[in-house]
Design a protein around this nucleic acid. Structure first.
Lengths: 224, 224
DNA sequence: TGAATAGTGTCTTTCAGACAATATGCC
DNA sequence: GGCATATTGTCTGAAAGACACTATTCA
């Protein structure tokens, strides 16, 4: 802290949180967007978010905003980066702390919010024009997600409790936008020891049923 | 952004930046600390930092504070993480955006600041008690530095323009706290293509002089 | 020629990546 | 049996890690 600074002397910026909620739906990586119903950027799609209250932590603010706007609770949440260019919000100085959240398919149902606001999931490829610097935030978050896929078990945030190896592989392929060799993928993923066979198999399908696996660790292990 | 929020309605937090300036001196990894000369934590060592001005970007604030408190300019600077626990500052709500900076030995001279404040470099092992949550910030930054050493050329921020392979290896050993095999290290570092022999050698030493190397890329390449 | 540090090569193991045939369950 | 997907192993090349001797400069 600088020495001669009087906390009350200067204008203070506003601080917001914005959340990138990733999910996989219809074989696509998608994020949640909210259509703004006020200025600035009225009618433009934006990341869910809002101002940090004076008595709540940043993580709590992100959780609260996410819940208010999507009904999602208790999901993986990770701070990404803080964006603070002076003119990023035309109203006033707003510094935003961004977060990445991951949701499995069943964990959200939209319109649980009291507001009748528009909210929808969009494929990360082909997003509409976004408000503020949110496009930059999405780009940053995507990169982080792709990187973390390689050295963490972060993918568990996007999967149900039990899943087949083919489903797991598809998630990797969708996020990384690559084809992966099935044998090499299985060899590698099983050698990490992060998942284990549940002994149960898929049922009610017209072909050979796949083994269901679960993550040994129910929590995402942070190594970054 | 939430819909019904009036920007002026709630109290705003203060936003500060705190900077972790790493350097290597006397074979040790050290960071810059400033002794606080005001409350709270009067007389306690703390990271250099201060409040973000309403018209400056976060990066600019970090650069400014670093320069004011250490005289260091034009060095590598990277945003780390934003800490915002409600009670982390006993005065008022202060959210701090933290940065990591790297300086080679010759890039700083202390006491360039007008203030006659105490400032000194401390070994990262065996730091004094730190103000606020700065110990946590140091821990986080150290981890980031160690991780980045493995997959970036970040180490160039800590070295002079020309250096021997032994010096380079020592920096890795100091930061990672491990012994590295000399042959394997050279093989690996040369195979990355990041450095090249300058053709010059050390002079004025009483034994075989070492080749001096330089980084091909003068900028630290960010891949994270 | 002795002291001090620089510089160099081989072998082994591990991991990533290319590649195709067989197994199972249901209709 | 036919269909649809699940499951499995080998080979090759690259990189990591263990390991020890020779080379150069100056005093």
């Amino acid at each position: 802290m600088s020495n001669k600074y009087d906390v009350t002397q200067y204008d203070r910026p506003s601080v917001s949180v914005d959340v990138l909620l990733f999910t996989i739906e219809e074989g696509e990586l998608k994020i949640l967007l909210i259509k703004r119903n006020e200025e600035p950027f009225l009618g433009t799609w934006a990341l869910p978010g809002g101002f940090v209250r004076i008595e709540e932590s940043l993580d709590d603010a992100a959780k609260r905003e996410l819940f208010e706007e999507s009904g999602v609770k208790n999901i993986y949440l990770e701070q990404l980066f803080t964006f603070g260019a002076p003119k990023r919000d035309p109203r006033t100085r707003v510094i935003t702390v961004t977060y990445m959240a991951l949701a499995g398919k069943s964990e959200w149902k939209l319109s649980s919010s009291g507001d009748a606001q528009d909210a929808a999931f969009f494929k990360v490829d082909g997003l509409p024009k976004l408000a503020f610097d949110h496009a930059e935030i999405v780009k940053y978050g995507l990169e982080r997600l792709r990187n973390k896929l390689g050295y963490t078990n972060i993918v568990l945030g996007l999967l149900p409790g039990a899943f087949t190896l083919t489903e797991l592989q598809k998630v990797y392929e969708i996020i990384l936008k690559t084809k992966i060799d099935k044998r090499n993928f299985r060899k590698k993923i099983l050698s990490t020891g992060l998942i284990s066979a549940s002994g149960k198999k898929l049922e009610g399908i017209a072909h050979r049923p796949a083994m269901l696996y679960t993550f040994k660790n129910k929590k995402i292990v942070i190594t970054d």
